[in-house]
Nucleic acid binder design. Structure first.
Lengths: 345, 345
DNA sequence: CCTCCCCCTGGGAGCGCTCCCACCTGCGCT
DNA sequence: AGCGCAGGTGGGAGCGCTCCCAGGGGGAGG
């Protein structure tokens, strides 16, 4: 079957719908776009024609004529997908999908890895190929958000980058999640609570550390900078940090790791050092990923409502695109976290 | 005067590029689309103009004029995302992204949950809004693939649905993966190897079972239908199946579960029954997900090259779209699996 | 030296839609 | 009766691109 072009058989066009309904093209367009300035009778006639012909608007034509695309891009920095793979990525996508389900909006997935792809992306966006952008896992020094701002392209990011985020952003309550975790440890009588942080350039990691500090003070424990070990969100990094902590403070009796994966690394080191979890050392992670549920012992962890975050991001973006933007200032939505207590604490 | 309308602020158009390069619109178009019928000098002039103006083709216009979209859809059945969340989804996406990186192709992500969304999807596709479709986690009785076939829409699916798959598909070698797992168990002296299967309507699950059977015979073990417990790919299902197996064949000394998650369920039951892993019962999973790595004891598992699968799917699809389709028969690519031996076997 | 081609090239003709302007009804008002 | 107005309506004018056809130059062949 060489040339089975369905072209001539033809999808119905607006013109045909209009003809069938006995109205003009403009009127048919009005009905399809839900304009109120159409009489009831006409509306019904057009709708009937649409149904009979199985008309579906041509997106490309619409985009060309209307100077919009009815599509938004979810931009994911490729290098991150590996780390964020766990539940994060698919949960975000699911949330975004849910928000878009009743919309005509399409979701464009854009992985940016190399710098070349990054440049390409900038072009994409400059060329206004989408109506808005969802940015996930943005680094504080990423030029992309600013570029988007200059272009006037609606944009929502998945985590504030500093205390004063100029862009709309959705975040989980990292501060409070960490606070709750440490409070929980303290309330169970732990006195030397250490923490393994994520990369502190990431604002969320910083906030978790802040939460840790706040809870330590609030619990009346002695703040001790030697109980704080920076790492990088990786399992290996978590293990290294744990080793350092054990050297510096052999008597520690609890560890709050800023991610489950780092907690897994820490667990390994604790085991090798002969510390029992939770008898000798309590351990808490962050993310409540599959790793936490299946670790032995099952890991207490701070759950983030990731799917909901995706949904809220999309909703904010749709608002912004529709011009319903709260012109006051860019909204920052912070969703609550939840401490899921299991066996490790 | 239809002469030089100086478009202020707007993105440059092909027309402007052509003017700047001192050529006609047609020629500029040819250069941009890499047609060979352009002289070297002209090509350079146009390319220079493109660079100076920062020209990026308008996709919508292209789509409208060219009757193609330069976009493919990755269709994911929403209900599945949860199960397939593990590494599967993001790995597939990453693979697809890799294949598309050097292309002008966009990736449209489409989650279909409700029947309503399913219908909408059918419309989408009927309206030729994409050049091709990647179908993931297709059920044997799904009407979508056939619909696509009728439409003449290029399509690649992520696993054959029967032995004779009419569509192009990419698969991992489920048969051989299972075979290798069971062979490994037998070679370590296990005599009563049970299996927990996935939903057998899923062809891949069936193939894993086939591989299990083949290996059992090949190892000279007595085939025993009572050692085969069907489940549904869930942790709970795996646990139930394990209980049933223990009742029926208390003396079993090895279990091959057709997914890591089911293995996790089985592990729980084995523990509760006082069986040590691997001393009393060896356990092997399938997928090599994070769950496997972090289980205790670390789970031996069959790794599938999921990212590569995504990549091959996209490549096949691009071929098909480009008409490079080996019209002989629809290609079925089967990628090798790998047994990752850890502590549980 | 002329002719025939073969390259390149320019630009017309849409692709299907939205935007917008003009028009055309009725109706209520003066 | 005349006028204004507003709700409905039709269709022209593009949006920026690709496709394709006709046309202009040379180089090769007669």
């Amino acid at each position: 079957m060489a040339a089975a072009r369905v072209r001539s058989g033809g999808r119905p066009t607006l013109e045909e719908v209009a003809a069938r309904a006995g109205v003009g093209r403009g009127t048919a367009s009005r009905v399809i776009n839900g304009s109120p300035r159409v009489s009831e009778a006409t509306r019904e006639a057009v709708e009937a024609a649409v149904a009979e012909l199985g008309y579906v608007p041509n997106r490309a034509a619409r985009a060309l004529a209307g100077n919009r695309t009815d599509a938004i891009a979810l931009v994911v920095p490729e290098p991150e997908t590996r780390f964020f793979a766990e539940p994060y990525f698919s949960a975000i996508v699911r949330g975004v999908g849910a928000a878009l389900a009743d919309t005509e909006m399409q979701l464009l997935l854009t992985l940016v890895g190399s710098d070349r792809e990054r440049r390409r992306l900038a072009q994409y966006l400059t060329a206004h190929r989408v109506d808005g952008v969802l940015l996930v896992a943005v680094h504080a020094d990423d030029p992309l958000p600013e570029l988007l701002g200059q272009l006037g392209m609606p944009c929502v990011i998945s985590g504030a980058r500093h205390a004063a985020e100029p862009l709309a952003s959705v975040d989980s309550d990292n501060f409070d999640g960490a606070r709750a975790a440490v409070e929980h440890l303290a309330s169970r009588g732990r006195r030397q609570v250490a923490t393994i942080t994520g990369r502190l350039e990431v604002y969320g990691a910083q906030r978790r550390l802040d939460g840790y500090r706040a809870a330590v003070s609030a619990a009346g424990l002695a703040p001790d900078e030697r109980l704080i070990a920076p790492a990088d969100f990786t399992e290996e990094g978590g293990a290294r940090a744990m080793r350092r902590l054990l050297e510096r403070r052999p008597a520690l009796d609890a560890v709050f790791a800023a991610s489950d994966v780092m907690a897994a690394g820490a667990r390994q080191v604790l085991r090798e050092a002969g510390r029992r979890i939770p008898e000798d050392v309590a351990l808490i992670g962050f993310d409540d990923s599959a790793v936490a549920r299946h670790m032995h012992p099952a890991l207490t962890s701070v759950r983030q409502p990731i799917e909901e975050m995706g949904q809220r991001m999309a909703e904010l973006l749709l608002d912004e695109i529709a011009g319903r933007a709260p012109d006051a200032e860019s909204p920052t939505v912070v969703l609550p976290t939840e401490l899921v207590v299991r066996d490790s604490s």
